[in-house]
Design a protein around this nucleic acid. Structure first.
Length: 917
RNA sequence: GGGCGAUUGGCUCAGUCGGUUAGAGCGCACGGUUCACAUCCGUGAGGUCACUGGUUCGAAUCCAGUAUCGCCCACCA
């Protein structure tokens, strides 16, 4: 058969020899769309509207982005949960959308227009925003298409955008409410300023970066004392100057005091004296303040209130002037004397040089410090004093914490609760003003007298709330909101809030909020605060936090490092289901995971394995089986192998259910992988092959019924992880009475039928035969016997269950072990065979005519087995000889040890007899 | 400075309530054209469960400490 033939050969089942995702996945997805099954009230929905809805809350991806592996991982987990809930016939809502991502989007667009020779400034606000909207239209569909290729079953009919009118109204209403509640306020505060982005940032957007800087010691000259007392206490040399330490010499220009500790003997006499600030010739006082650490630097601190939070507090305590010496771009302004107009770092260089040349630079030493950098642009963030909008989040944080304490919101894994509380307890006011253009304009208006009017109306206020000046005389705040403000409203703004809509009543609060732990504070915490405050409900019942994806070496994936895996490339090559399985299989709650080609190929191979198992099942349908619904045959048509696989199936259904229920999705995937591959394919399919060719038509039909039944169960359980493949296979199988046409809306399985039917003794018997076959294979392989060679064998089966099962499965056992077997009723008969391989397993013993084997290797194997059994026997004996163990351990454990002892004794005895024979 | 997590074969990870012989995938070695699948089948080698101490009849598992790695939070000039 040529390569071409083998690929196109679809056989009688109409299925290709390998699973081909590129053909199948888009077709399957189109069927779902056409059937309208994604929406909770879609035409194809089989939701039981009396059941509690299952609502996924998902952080919408950035509108300008492309789907990366993190998105794929998040989406897969979300989709998995929604699919399972859908199969449980709960009304399910997964509302998709994109985030306008103001600062990130501007960053991207600035790059795009730069290529066109434009800048934000050259376009101006209006044209820039027009350009942005056009850009949005181009990029907005990209993410959606990519999500669909991944197979995500979100309700696309409700797709939302954080810049749409619904969001805008939610922003206005919420802000008005927070303002009326006294939580939103406008004030002059030190904010984080990014000179590159020319906007303020919240604390979260500032990344603390350890760096080695320089600590300069600078001498400030004192003015002569006004009274005589000081001169009496200290010598003239000491009063000449005071030395301060700084890491930012350019801020000298904004100094308005020098501070020392009140109990510092070295400086006690200088408190109240005055110094001259270099370059600006400002005369400032020496003050005493507890904030000074006497042990650091020289123990004297220069106070620059406009550029340092601690200094500002000190200044306020001492009523000092506040002098801002910086422009928006980070350069020194006109207050910086000769340095005005210079970039900050250049000013620093020159100031240091001048200090050095005039002898006032006392020391310069390397200094380990932490510098705040902009999350987006990496620029050094400057503390600056600005009038902006803040939200007092403390009262909201209290409510959010209460939701967690009360158990109304559960964080999974639980260890993140601690992180959450720690952050919430130390939370500081949230600066929401951004000096950007792309985003929701702050709905605050100012009249010429400075009165503030906050309005929730789209057209703004009619008049000043204080002095009633008409709207025409009011001016709206130029700033926009922090992106995360509108994101934080997402879980309810998308349901129609502030209107009391049906959706709000039905789908709020959400069931599970799924996201990576990296945005716990940005998103989850803020959404919980805003949700609790504005809707008086917790926005979701469970927060499911996932880990980050790393490359096979544990490194973070990043474009610059070049180790990113493009999910779309994987989908093209291996299929969406393979990607999804690999992502789920390797994941644990809250833990990072590594992903590389080997995991992806493994997932692809698993899909192909299942595909081929299905191909076999479908192709082996006995002629006598009439068309009819899927059902289990009644007892008489089941053989031991059927009881075994049904017992295994029941167990798997329960274990997988438990794993899904506890968010252990990786575990669910592993359980299914093992059940399908190692039990269903490796053993049951092989055992079933013989019975499928039995003379008795009822037996053939019974076997096929079990084959299809178990496959059906596994397909249902696996569907949330590998939806396309399972849907495609399922379509070709007979269905239960009452099943829909599509697996996506078929019922979620339970193990009831199997458990009622299974004969455990028969199942155990098959387990024993599996051990026997494995033992024979092992002995053959160790002895170097050709795998294909049929050997005569004598079997003595002591386990009654295995013996009973053997009656029905002899042919299958012979085929799997590659032997022609004779069953002997008395073990002594085995010893009559000369020069044979010995197989000693729990359920019995076998002798294999040796064929071309090597007796020395056989003997080595037996000696090794004997040594191992003997070692374990001695261990067990010792344990049972310990009186304390027998007395204190639970009876079941002691009995287990006793049984084991008996088993091992017999094994050792028999092995010893064979070795010495 | 505070907090969290991890440490189990060469690699990546499971390991439930402490209880028989610590599992899997990849990789490796050996052997296979067994009529679903070479994206496959069979067999095997490979582990002082990071270290020290404690609790216990019994510890990979619980407790304390140590080491290494990773992450989060934090206004000392």
């Amino acid at each position: 058969m040529t390569e071409q033939q083998s690929i196109t050969d679809t056989g009688e089942t109409g299925m290709a020899r390998t699973y081909r995702p590129a053909d199948i996945e888009p077709r399957v997805y189109a069927r779902w769309l056409a059937a309208d099954v994604f929406a909770p009230d879609g035409i194809g929905s089989r939701a039981d509207q009396s059941k509690p809805p299952f609502v996924i809350v998902q952080p919408p991806p950035n509108v300008t982005g492309a789907l990366h592996l993190g998105h794929a991982a998040r989406g897969t987990v979300e989709d998995l949960m929604i699919r399972r809930a859908r199969m449980q016939c709960r009304p399910t809502l997964w509302l998709p959308g994109v985030d306008h991502a103001s600062i990130a989007a501007q960053f991207v667009l600035d790059g795009v227009i730069a290529a066109e020779g434009e800048t934000r400034q050259s376009l101006g606000r209006e044209r820039y925003l027009e350009r942005m909207w056009r850009f949005m239209e181009e990029t907005r569909g990209v993410i959606r298409d990519q999500q669909r290729r991944l197979g995500l079953s979100a309700d696309w009919s409700r797709e939302r955008f954080t810049m749409d009118e619904g969001s805008a109204q939610a922003v206005r209403t919420s802000f008005k409410q927070l303002y009326d509640d006294g939580l939103a306020y406008r004030g002059e505060r030190l904010i984080n300023w990014c000179p590159g982005c020319r906007t303020s940032l919240s604390d979260l957007e500032v990344i603390a970066t350890p760096e080695t800087g320089t600590l300069w010691s600078v001498r400030y000259h004192l003015l002569p004392a006004e009274g005589a007392d000081a001169a009496a206490l200290v010598s003239a040399a000491e009063v000449e100057a005071i030395t301060v330490a700084t890491t930012r010499p350019e801020t000298i220009l904004g100094d308005t005091a020098v501070a020392v500790h009140p109990e510092d003997e070295r400086y006690r006499a200088l408190v109240g004296r005055r110094v001259r600030i270099p370059f600006v010739d400002r005369i400032v006082p020496i003050i005493a303040d507890e904030m000074v650490d006497r042990a650091f630097g020289t123990g004297a601190v220069k106070i620059t209130p406009a550029h340092d939070p601690a200094d500002l507090e000190t200044a306020q305590r001492h009523d000092l002037p506040i002098i801002d010496v910086m422009e928006d771009d980070g350069s020194i302004n006109h207050l910086g004397a000769a340095f005005g107009g210079l970039p900050g770092l250049e000013a620093r260089r020159r100031i240091v040089a001048e200090l050095e040349s005039n002898g006032d630079l006392v020391a310069a030493s390397p200094h380990e410090m932490v510098i705040g950098r902009c999350q987006r642009s990496d620029d050094v963030v400057e503390p600056r004093l600005k009038v902006q909008w803040f939200i007092d989040v403390k009262p909201m944080a209290e409510r959010a914490m209460k939701a967690v304490r009360d158990g109304r919101t559960r964080i999974v894994p639980k260890r993140y609760e601690k992180v959450f509380f720690n952050w919430m307890e130390n939370i500081r006011d949230w600066n929401v003003s951004r000096q950007l253009w792309w985003g929701h304009r702050i709905p605050a208006w100012y009249c010429p007298d400075g009165h503030v009017t906050v309005s929730d109306k789209p057209e703004g206020p009619d008049a000043c709330a204080t002095c009633k000046l008409p709207a025409g005389d009011l001016r709206q705040d130029e700033d926009i909101f922090d992106t995360w403000y509108s994101s934080g409203l997402w879980s309810f703004s998308t349901l129609g809030w502030p209107e009391a809509t049906d959706d709000m009543r039905r789908y709020y609060p959400g069931t599970v909020m799924e996201t990576g732990y990296d945005i716990l504070f940005f998103w989850v915490a803020r959404m919980m605060m805003l949700g609790e405050w504005l809707t008086t409900r917790e926005p979701f019942g469970t927060v499911l936090l996932s880990g980050l994806l790393r490359d096979p070496y544990g490194k973070k994936m990043s474009k610059t490092r070049g180790n990113v895996i493009d999910p779309l490339g994987v989908i093209d090559e291996l299929g969406a289901d393979a990607l999804r399985f690999a992502l789920v299989h390797g994941s644990g709650p809250g833990g990072d995971q590594r992903l590389g080609p080997s995991q992806l190929e493994g997932a692809r191979n698993f899909g192909n394995k299942l595909w081929n198992a299905a191909r076999f099942v479908l192709g082996s349908r006995p002629d006598a089986v009439p068309d009819g619904p899927l059902d289990l045959p009644v007892g008489g048509y089941l053989g031991p192998a059927e009881h075994w696989i049904l017992a295994r199936c029941a167990r798997t259904v329960e274990e997988v259910e438990e794993a899904y229920r506890t968010f252990a999705f990786g575990e669910a995937a592993r359980l299914l992988h093992d059940a399908i591959w190692n039990e269903y394919c490796d053993w049951y399919l092989e055992l079933a092959k013989v019975r499928l060719s039995a003379d008795d038509a009822q037996r053939r039909a019974g076997t096929w019924a079990v084959l299809t039944w178990v496959l059906d169960r596994y397909l249902r359980l696996l569907h949330p992880v590998m939806p396309h493949l399972t849907e495609e296979i399922w379509a070709r199988l007979p269905h239960l009475t009452g099943d829909p046409d599509l697996l996506i809306v078929a019922g979620w399985p339970d193990a009831g039928r199997e458990k009622a039917l299974v004969d455990e003794a028969q199942a155990r018997g098959v387990q024993g035969l599996i051990e026997l076959v494995s033992g024979i294979r092992n002995a053959r392989s160790e002895a170097g016997i050709e795998p294909g060679l049929w050997l005569p064998a004598s079997l003595h089966i002591t386990d009654p269950d295995a013996l009973a099962a053997y009656g029905a499965l002899q042919t299958a056992v012979e085929r799997l072990a590659r032997v022609r077997a004779t069953l002997v009723g008395d073990r002594a008969q085995l010893d009559l065979i000369e020069g044979a391989l010995t197989v000693l397993v729990r359920p019995g013993e076998a002798r294999l005519a040796r064929g071309g084997s090597d007796l020395i290797r056989e003997r080595e194997r037996l000696v090794k087995e004997l040594a191992e059994a003997d070692r374990m026997l001695i261990e067990t004996e010792a344990r049972l000889a310990d009186q304390r163990f027998v007395e204190r351990a639970p009876e079941a454990v002691v009995q287990g040890a006793r049984d084991r002892l008996a088993e091992l004794s017999e094994r050792v005895e028999r092995l010893r007899a064979r070795v010495t024979a």
